[in-house]
Every structure is written in structure tokens, then in C-alpha cells.
């Protein structure tokens, strides 16, 4: 134990090397409710981060772990790169709620890993695609307490398929990041 290879920053030059065709479109074996998750990644000075890599991994619409399938790319996984305005956008299906091995109830959520220049190791968290009161019993929402609000995406009032979630790496309303 303890012989792991350490993490290092992704640096500023990953865009060509880590490009996936349609990486921001999540694939699934089946169908479901189409949703878009979008937002900006900000640094501690409120500046949009133009060189972040945002990856998401989520349950399928029935709440199951997406398995191997016919697709070349892995089901349930996305990779998006922020633009000059710091914005990422992924197109996916609404993840189902699920139950953990110990009976814990997980609200509909997407697991997120963010790499960037200036991050010597990734930040990880989960974003809820659910109203705040529907996340109350979720293990992370409980553990995050007052900071849980930073993990709840807001559903667009006009286009109900769009969920907005900004990430703040540092400072006021810093996003609650996790270690698991």
C-alpha cells in the first residue's frame, strides 16, 4: 500500500491530446428524458476558466450503472472542455435515483471530475438534477450540510430540459468537493 503514482496537473495543452469526438454527448443503450447540463467554471477571483476538462459519469435513466455495450465509447460517460467563457455543456439523459449497498437513497445526480491547469489533482463532486427538497436524504447532501446548495443544478424556467450548474473552485460559494 502507499505505492500509488501521484497525480499531476493536466496543464494547459490537453485539448488536442484528449479530444473525443462528440465527447460531450453521453451515450446510453436505452432511451430516456433528454437533458442538458451546462454552466461555467470559475476561479477564486471570479474569472471563467478556459482550460478545464469536465468529465461526468452517471447512472442510466433506470438508476443502474451503465455496463459495456455496443457503443465504442463507454456508456454513461462524458468529456467536455470549457470554452473561452469557461462554459461546459453536456447532453445526456436524466439519471435515475438509485440505492446504495447499505440501503442509502441517492437522488438523481451526476458524478463530476474536473481537471485544469493549476489543479495538481482533480476536484470531484456530484451534482443533483433534482429540487433541493428531493435531495434531503441523499448521503452527500446530508454530509455537505449548508454547502449542499452548491451541488444543486437549477432547472431553466423556460426550457425544462436545461439544468444550470456553475462550479466555483475557490472563494465565496466555493463548490463542495468530495473525497470518497
Amino acid at each position: 500500500m502507499g505505492n500509488r503514482t501521484p497525480s499531476q496537473t493536466i496543464g494547459p495543452f490537453f485539448h488536442v491530446g484528449l479530444k473525443w469526438e462528440d465527447g460531450e454527448k453521453v451515450q446510453f443503450a436505452g432511451t430516456g428524458e433528454r437533458v442538458v447540463l451546462t454552466g461555467c467554471v470559475y476561479d477564486g477571483g471570479g474569472t471563467a476558466i478556459a482550460d478545464a476538462l469536465v468529465e461526468t459519469w452517471q447512472a442510466d435513466p433506470s438508476g443502474k450503472v451503465p455496463g459495456a455495450g455496443a457503443a465504442v465509447r463507454a456508456y454513461g460517460y462524458s468529456r467536455a472542455m470549457t470554452g473561452s467563457d469557461g462554459r461546459y455543456t453536456i447532453e445526456t439523459l436524466m439519471p435515475g435515483a438509485c440505492t446504495g449497498a447499505g440501503g442509502e437513497k441517492y437522488a438523481p445526480q451526476i458524478n463530476v471530475t474536473i481537471f485544469a491547469r493549476g489543479l495538481l489533482k482533480a476536484v470531484r463532486t456530484r451534482v443533483f438534477l433534482a429540487a433541493a427538497d428531493a435531495t434531503r436524504d441523499d448521503p452527500l447532501a446530508r454530509a455537505a450540510g449548508a454547502r449542499a446548495g452548491t451541488l444543486i443544478a437549477s432547472q431553466d424556467a423556460k426550457d425544462r430540459s436545461v439544468w444550470r450548474w456553475d462550479v466555483r473552485l475557490q472563494g465565496k460559494d466555493e463548490t463542495a468537493f468530495i473525497d470518497f
Partner: peptide, 12 residues
């Protein structure tokens, strides 16, 4: 400006 300052939340 990019390092989180708050402790990570430890969860299962």
C-alpha cells in the same frame, strides 16, 4: 486562485 480552500467532504 484555483485551489479549493474548504475541506473536502468525505463520503462513502
Amino acid at each position: 486562485l484555483r485551489a479549493p480552500k474548504q475541506p473536502l467532504i468525505r463520503v462513502a
